[in-house]
Simulated assay, not measured.
Amino acid sequence: MVRVTLHEVAQEAGVSDSTVSRALRGLDKVDEGTRERVRLAAERLHFSISRNASSLASGKTMRVSVLFADKLNTWFDSSVLQGVYEVLFREQYDIIPNTVSTYGQLQSFFDRLPADNNVDAVIVTSINLEPGQTKVLERLTIPTVGLDSRTIDGFDASVLLNDRKGMHEAVSLLQRFGHRRIAFVGQPAPGEFKFSSQLRGTAFVQEARLAGYGDQQIFRFDTGKIADYRTYDEAVNAAAAQVLSLAPMPTAICVETDDFAVPLMASLRHYGIRIPEDLSIIGFDDANIAAAADLTTIHQNPEDMSRTAAHKTLALMRGEILEERHTMIEPILMLRGSTARYVPKAAR
């Protein structure tokens, strides 16, 4: 098969060879009408410019790193990858996922960035950065965008979820339903990192106090780290034991994530707790599993959040000034069958 040349594309589009080169490499000084005419001509002739050649000529790597903690196969992280991919792939960027499990690995990642010079931007997902690491971000010459981060410090832009608002919605619902003994159940931390989801427990207690709950009416169950348990089921059963051992037991709980709330519901039912008759349960995330489990939860959409983060990243790589550098997303309460009005035992 004869290979189509750049010159043939130029003839097809009615422009010079250099204009074709600039248009297909995404360089400035080519108006959008000409760029589209060149693109269509290249498409008709099945011509594609070498990605490596384009990168060398433009000074861009056409790669964006997305940094995750530990695993990529969680509901949240896989949703983030999908959203980022949808935006950046259309602009011919490759997405490079990176995972770190310890602060040592995180520090090594940031130490390598300036010397490697192999990505055009970095999106950091959910990880709480130490002050020294935010200083590294500030010194980088490439855009850095925080997604679901605990802070905006050091980032050129960010997209955050208003966890405090989510906890306000949860506490308000339980109060309207007449629950006076309420609790927050944390999920075991997967490793060294502090995640944005771990802010929810503090926010829950703060919102409960603002709503008029006293210290003897608010409880918080800490489940430690996942490494403290032999299996995930063991962690779930340990959390259930904490809830059941409190006398009198809370009449409603809010759980850090849906992924922990759903198996916790199953464990409590195994020990004879009726949901929601004996105990109302609220999750957080509105992961795919939540609707199937009929779990009341706080909805967030990580695909939409990551699309927003990716658009901010694109704009920064183009040298554009963002109208809104830091975006706060408001969560939504999803009312389902795991919550109900409190009814005293004597009235049942």
Rank of each mutant, 00 (worst) to 15 (best):
V136E: 02
H311C: 04
D285V: 03
I321S: 11
F76P: 00
A292D: 08
L45M: 04
G166F: 06
L268G: 00
L335F: 10
D70Y: 15
Y271H: 11
A121V: 10
P188I: 06
I273V: 15
A293G: 09
F109N: 01
E330F: 08
Q107N: 15
L129Y: 04
Y229T: 01
G154T: 14
A13R: 09
L72I: 11
G178I: 10
L322D: 04
F47A: 06
L264H: 02
G59L: 07
V243P: 08
A347G: 08
E86H: 15
I329F: 01
L161T: 07
D120R: 01
A347C: 02
E86C: 05
G214E: 02
S267M: 07
P188E: 05
T313Y: 04
L27P: 04
I127A: 04
I142N: 05
T5S: 15
P97T: 07
T339Q: 04
S197Y: 10
M249V: 12
I282F: 12
E207P: 10
G283T: 00
S21I: 09
Q216C: 12
N52R: 11
S50H: 07
T141S: 09
P250N: 06
V124H: 04
F68P: 01
R341G: 13
L244V: 05
F204W: 03
R180F: 15
T151C: 07
L106K: 07
V119K: 00
E192V: 01
F195S: 13
R139W: 10
S65P: 02
N288L: 13
Q175L: 13
R176S: 15
V64Y: 05
T339W: 12
L72W: 07
I142Y: 08
I275M: 11
F219Y: 08
M265C: 11
L56R: 06
G191H: 03
V343Q: 06
N162Q: 09
N128L: 12
I218W: 05
F76C: 01
G186M: 12
K345M: 13
V243C: 11
E330V: 12
N128R: 05
F109C: 02
I95G: 08
Q133Y: 07
G154M: 05
V171R: 00
H168M: 14
V80W: 03
H7M: 07
D286S: 14
Q300F: 10
A189L: 11
V80C: 08
A157M: 05
L174P: 12
L314H: 02
D31G: 03
M334N: 09
V343P: 07
D286E: 11
N301S: 15
R90H: 15
I281E: 02
